Simulated assay, not measured.
Amino acid sequence: MALIEKLKEEQKSAMKAKDKTRLGTIRLALSAIKQREVDERITLSDDEIVAVLTKMVKQRRDSIAQYEDAGRQDLADVEQSEITVLEDFMPQPLSDEEVAALVTSAVTEANAQGMQDMGKVMGILRPQIQGRADMGVVSGLVKTKLS
């Protein structure tokens, strides 16, 4: 089943279960997907939908950090519950060993010699890792590998 259909089915289930948090989060996700489709006049593939969901999770993590710094744990908890719902629709995260193996193979595949080849390596890794690992951590691993 395509990811967009899965989101719509879960939206119906959340309506029937009267789960307001889940329903609201799914509606936000569907709205963000629809907005991108309208803006770019395209139909998003599952990979592009995962990219939208990844961006939403990243925004919520940033918000959690800001709320916790301001002492607003109640708002941070709301954001955390939204992350939990969004992660249900994302691919399984990669383990640290799997990420390290992918980085090593990408460095070999790109025939990278130094930091000037980091863009090539990240270009190879991005489609494989998108939504399954934190790109900041992956970037740090690549930098370490190329140094």
Rank of each mutant, 00 (worst) to 15 (best):
L102V: 03
T21V: 15
L75N: 06
V138Y: 06
I42D: 05
L75W: 12
P93I: 08
S81F: 08
V107M: 00
E87G: 01
E97S: 10
V78P: 03
D117L: 11
A70C: 04
I26K: 03
Q80W: 11
R72N: 15
R132L: 10
L125E: 11
V57Y: 05
V103Y: 01
D77F: 04
E9F: 10
E98F: 04
A29Y: 00
A29D: 06
E109K: 11
M135W: 03
I33K: 02
S105D: 14
E68L: 15
R36G: 00
L102K: 05
R27M: 11
I129Q: 06
I129L: 09
Y67I: 08
S147G: 14
M118D: 04
P91R: 05
G140L: 07
P127V: 13
I64F: 07
S45V: 07
E40T: 11
R126N: 13
S95Y: 03
L30G: 04
K12S: 11
V85D: 09
Q92M: 13
D39A: 15
A100K: 09
F89I: 10
D117I: 12
A106T: 01
M122D: 07
E98P: 01
M1Q: 04
A76T: 05
V138G: 01
K143G: 05
E5P: 00
V52Q: 08
M118S: 11
V142W: 06
I4C: 03
R41N: 14
E82G: 09
S105V: 03
A100C: 00
V121G: 07
Q59D: 15
I83P: 07
K58P: 00
L3W: 07
K8Y: 09
E79L: 10
M56I: 12
D134F: 08
E87P: 05
R27E: 14
L141P: 01
A133W: 08
M15E: 14
L94H: 03
I64K: 04
K6S: 10
S13A: 12
S81L: 14
I129N: 03
L3T: 05
V50M: 06
Q116I: 13
L28G: 09
S139H: 07
M118H: 03
G140V: 01
E37D: 10
F89S: 04
Q59V: 09
V52F: 06
Q35P: 00
E109P: 00
E87L: 14
L102I: 02
R60Y: 13
D19N: 14
E40V: 04
V85Y: 08
